[in-house]
Amino acid sequence: MKKRLISIGLVAALLLSMTACGNKKTEEENASKSELKDVTVILDYVPNTNHTGLYAAKDLGYYEDAGLNVTIIEPTDGVTATLVAAGKGDFGISYQEDVTYALASKDPLPIKAIATIIQHNTSGFASIASKHIQTPKAFENKVYAGWGAPSEEAVIHAVMNAAGADFSKLTMVTADGADYSTLDNKIDLMWMFWAWDGIAATRQGLDLNYIELRSLDKRLDYYTPVIIANTDTIENDPELVQAFMDATTKGYEYAIDNPAASAEILHKYADTYDLEMLKESQEYLAKKYSEDSEVWGLMKDSVWDGYTDFMVENGLIDKSIPAAECYTNEFIKKK
């Protein structure tokens, strides 16, 4: 009995010791997490393969390794650029076009692009192949469905004019969503991003003609999307921006090297999407993220200046904005 009591006592002591160690480990983990810097990233839209690098960096621990506790949210009560400018988020996903608009307004927003997610504009005009719409000249007497933005009309007007087409002969309607099936009957043309809409449409069995925007005017090869930050954050907390960008770069480099695995990571956070569709989209974008660039995220004055000139020429903004005011490469580490 004495031996049994001693054994029970030893087991109890061991359990207490293990519990204490476990509690200490949990406390250390909690303390470690509490030391992480909270960072909020506001997307431009629902999660998709444009954002995979962000989710890879989060899921693989790159942000935590950089001392960051990153929360990725969708925009709710306003556009991303406005929210970042107002300090509602540390970083955001936007577009070169929106950044230029924001800086050219009467009350410029304090934002700046710090990386481009994709090197080239992969958007374009899609139509059913059997309709033989292969140039903007063929837009005449057709029905185009879009989102109704002034820049959208300006771009279509410009490319039709350059092709010798009469813009007044195009009927433009506002679409409620990406119902690709309408291309087969009610609608002749849509402006879409191939990595998402184009792949989704072809997976539905649609045979499409696709005219890339950048093939019509080199100035339309602008950056979309881009990562933005508040200029106050850039100027006063460059260490935070650098830590975020280093981890984000690793996330996109992972997506480039591992498209299938990174699609599976994205699927964890956006499980309503078909996984095979995500994999096909990711395979396409893996080749586009850093296309023609030595590193991911790097931007050029010529791209910013080109689209700014287009916007001024077509009356979208009243004045040119110098590229240096729109973006910075200071947080991109060159190889």
Score class of each variant (00 low, 15 high):
Ala158Gln: 09
Ala158Pro: 05
Asn161Gln: 13
Ala162Thr: 05
Ala163Cys: 09
Ala163Val: 11
Asp166Asn: 06
Ser168Ala: 10
Lys169Val: 04
Leu170His: 03
Thr174Arg: 13
Ala178Thr: 12
Ala178Val: 10
Tyr180Ser: 07
Asp184Phe: 09
Asp184His: 09
Ile187Asp: 00
Ile187Cys: 00
Asp188Arg: 08
Leu189Asn: 05
Met192Val: 11
Met192Thr: 11
Trp194Tyr: 06
Ala195Asn: 10
Trp196Gln: 15
Trp196Ser: 15
Ile199His: 10
Ala201Asn: 14
Arg203His: 15
Arg203Tyr: 14
Gly205Asn: 13
Gly205Ser: 13
Leu206Phe: 14
Asp207Ala: 10
Leu208Arg: 10
Leu208Ile: 12
Asn209Phe: 14
Tyr210Glu: 09
Tyr210Gly: 11
Glu212Leu: 14
Leu213Met: 15
Leu213Cys: 14
Arg214Ile: 08
Arg214Thr: 08
Arg214Glu: 05
Ser215Ala: 14
Ser215Asp: 11
Leu216Ile: 06
Asp217Asn: 02
Asp217Ile: 03
Lys218Phe: 09
Arg219Ile: 06
Arg219Lys: 08
Arg219Asn: 09
Asp221Arg: 10
Asp221Trp: 09
Asp221Gln: 08
Asp221Thr: 12
Tyr222Phe: 07
Tyr223Gly: 01
Thr224His: 07
Pro225Gln: 08
Pro225Trp: 06
Val226Ser: 00
Val226His: 00
Ile227Pro: 05
Ile228Cys: 00
Ile228Lys: 00
Ala229Val: 09
Asn230Cys: 05
Thr231Leu: 07
Thr231Lys: 08
Asp232Tyr: 03
Thr233Trp: 04
Thr233Ile: 09
Glu235Thr: 03
Glu235Gly: 01
Glu235Arg: 03
Pro238Tyr: 03
Glu239Ser: 14
Leu240Cys: 00
Leu240Ala: 00
Gln242Ala: 08
Gln242Glu: 06
Ala243Gly: 00
Met245Ala: 08
Asp246His: 11
Thr248Pro: 03
Thr248Leu: 06
Thr249Met: 13
Glu253His: 10
Tyr254Trp: 04
Ala255Glu: 01
Ala255Leu: 02
Ile256Asn: 07
Asp257Asn: 07
Asp257Ser: 06
Asp257His: 04
Asn258Val: 01
Ala260Leu: 06
Ala260Val: 08
Ala261Ser: 03
Ser262Cys: 07
Ala263Gly: 03
Ala263Glu: 01
Ile265Tyr: 00
Ile265Gln: 01
Leu266Tyr: 02
Tyr269Asn: 02
Ala270Thr: 13
Asp271Val: 06
Tyr273Asp: 12
Leu275Arg: 05
Glu276Ser: 11
Glu276Thr: 11
Met277Pro: 15
Met277Leu: 15
Leu278Pro: 01
Leu278Val: 07
Leu278Glu: 04
Lys279Asn: 01
Ser281Asp: 12
Gln282Ile: 07
Glu283Asn: 11
Leu285His: 12
Lys287Met: 11
Tyr289Gln: 05
Glu291Ala: 13
Ser293Lys: 14
Glu294Val: 15
Trp296Cys: 05
Trp296Leu: 06
